[in-house]
Design a protein around this nucleic acid. Sequence first.
DNA 1: CATCTGACGACCG
DNA 2: GCGGTCGCCAGAT
Length: 113
Amino acid sequence: MSWEPVYRLVKKIPRGRVITYGEVAKALRTPGGARAVGYAMAATPPGRGIPWHRVLGAGGRIRLREPYAAKQRRLLETEGVVVGRVIDMKIYGWSFRRPQVKKAAKRKRRKTR
DNA sequence: CATCTGACGACCG
DNA sequence: GCGGTCGCCAGAT
């Protein structure tokens, strides 16, 4: 897989919400490629408006090494995300729109969260 | 083409 | 609940 799809998805993450590498990989239909996704984030060129800080490890854990970890934490808190030992995915976790086929879904927007 | 490496994840003891 | 292993994928050597 190329990084493009990864960047495209990450850019869709709303401010104040987060997601995990595994979820991204799964959204790209590449389960197990979570590691690759992380690599993609590391290769994310600045200035592309890619909210890399909204991507965390499983369980809302920051998998970065200092001093980057602190930086990511700060960025998240700036967006209103409460960062404790880990980030509560139950609250801030976000999901990409699943391959929602056309119709069916329009009836009554089932909340996506 | 063979290996190693890394912002990962699920399991097992 | 914590730490060590093994399995994954894409890039770099």
